[in-house]
Amino acid sequence: MSDAADNALVGVVLVSHSAQVAASVAELARGLAGGADVPVAPAGGTGAGELGTSAELIAAAAASVDRGAGVAVLTDLGSAVLTVKALLAEGDELPPRTSLVDAPFVEGAVAAVVTAATGADLAAVEAAAEEAYRYRKV
């Protein structure tokens, strides 16, 4: 796709019920991407230090990683999924071209960040993260 954001990287937001999980998975994915400067932001916990989901943290994280090339959001479960879907339905809470990616949280995050680091577009980042479901361990 050629537009103003031609050289911009896709942003990745990691939403977990736990602030530590979100931050650690972000660190893991960044590390495995070889230190590339991919915009990745964790949005974990309620914002009050408890387990849960914060719409405000999610919206802030998405805004912080938006470089104009789209934002891929990965979530763990339950309210994290529902909150992102509800924010997307609002229309104006998340940057344009923000998409909830159907992927396993850890493996999907690594695949998304590694792919985003190559300068791939949003569709390719999403596809790579979704592909992580097909990696069988036994």
Binding site: T46, G47, A48, E50, G52, T53, S54, A55, E56, G78, S79, L82, T83, K85, A86
Partner: peptide, 9 residues
């Protein structure tokens, strides 16, 4: 924006 669990969305 304020509930923090699935009941919020």
């Amino acid at each position: 924006s304020t509930v923090g669990g699935a009941s919020g969305p």
